[in-house]
């Protein structure tokens, strides 16, 4: 037997893991998919039903009386917190990448990049702890009241600032978690653009920043888009930090930017304990459907980013190795 034949099955375990995850979540969630139908993603109603009632048959499934599962509020919470994070992370990531690529001497660049990219190595639960214990008190007492007072003209910035747990706080913490990915990838791409581009622009009399901004940066457009999509994927699935600073809203759509939210990932952690109380198992299966939806979204988002990177010739993500 050839060596290739020998290692192919072992190597295939890596890809197999992805298929097995999707397949088993799909099989397990199937009764819930049939029971919930399309209302699962269009209704704001996650209700386990009467836990002390006798299970009843509905749509051919055994459920608790009054049980209904609609996760629109989770989808909204996930998308909005991710949107805030990406809107903040892209300028931060590009700015710091430009600074690291051309604003510091190469010897210093190595260490400054390393320091900032260490943000990617900090475990998400430590981000959560930092948000919970250090950021929320500051936001709650100082920054949110100030914003609600002085930035009230911006839509969704006015109104009650709540407790500090919520959409904007989640967005801030998520920003810091995804920005190293953009910084590392963009810095690599900027540094590795052909020297000729820079020399041509400088020879035409452009300043160094004009060279960077108008010549080098546009030539890395595809890498920027791809790293932005990858960062989006990471923010969509982030669990622990959002769980600790999101505020845990249930069946509630945020009315302003300070309002509490839950994301799909955080909801799975926070609700499994109570879902296990459902003797019919429909609640646990509906949570599996949440996981399935989240998984499919991440696969689509990450697949799109990877294909874009493959076709842009920037095949392997560089940077800190955490990408």
């Amino acid at each position: 037997m050839s060596f290739k034949r020998l290692i192919a099955p072992i190597a295939s375990l890596v890809g197999g893991a992805l298929l097995v995850i999707i397949a088993f979540l799909g099989i397990y969630a199937w009764p819930a998919v049939k029971f919930n139908g399309l209302g699962f993603v269009t209704k704001d109603n996650w209700n386990l039903g009467s836990l002390y009632g006798n299970p009843i048959m509905r749509h051919g499934q055994l459920i608790l009386p009054g049980a209904a599962y609609g996760i629109l509020f989770l989808i909204v919470g996930t998308l909005l917190s991710t949107l805030i994070a990406v809107l903040l992370a892209v300028p931060l990531g590009v700015g710091s990448a430009i600074f690291l690529a051309d604003g510091v001497p190469p010897a210093l660049r190595t260490w400054l990049s390393f320091f900032v990219e260490m943000l990617a190595a900090v475990p998400s639960v430590v981000f959560g702890l930092w948000g919970y214990a250090a950021v929320i008190p500051l936001l709650n007492h100082t920054m949110f009241p100030w914003m609600a007072k002085h930035l009230a003209f911006i839509p969704f910035f006015a109104g009650a600032t709540g407790s500090g747990y919520g959409l904007l706080t989640s967005g801030f913490v998520l920003t810091l978690m995804i920005v190293p990915l953009i910084t590392a990838t963009m810095r690599d791409a900027l540094v590795n653009q052909p020297r000729g581009l820079r020399e041509a622009a400088l020879a035409l009399g452009a300043t160094r920043f004009e060279t960077m901004w108008s010549v080098i940066l546009p030539s890395t457009r595809r890498v920027l888009i791809a790293s932005g999509i990858l960062a989006t994927g990471r923010a969509l699935g982030e669990t622990m930090a959002v769980l600790m600073v999101g505020g845990g809203a249930l069946n509630y759509l945020p009315q302003n930017i300070y309002a509490p939210i839950t994301t799909m990932a955080a909801f799975i952690v926070s609700q499994l304990d109570s879902a296990m109380e459902d003797p019919t198992g429909m609640a646990v299966r509906s949570l599996a459907e949440v996981a399935l939806v989240l998984c499919v979204i991440s696969v689509i988002v990450n697949g799109a980013a990877r294909l874009l990177l493959y076709f842009s010739g920037y095949e392997r993500m560089g940077g800190g190795g955490w990408a």
Binding site: I21, S298, G303, A305
Partner: peptide
């Protein structure tokens, strides 16, 4: 491709699986 996509699967999804 599958390995690269597996990196992006949220860790809670793996946990629930």
């Amino acid at each position: 491709f599958m390995s690269d996509v597996l990196v992006g699967v949220p860790s809670i999804v793996v946990g629930y699986f």
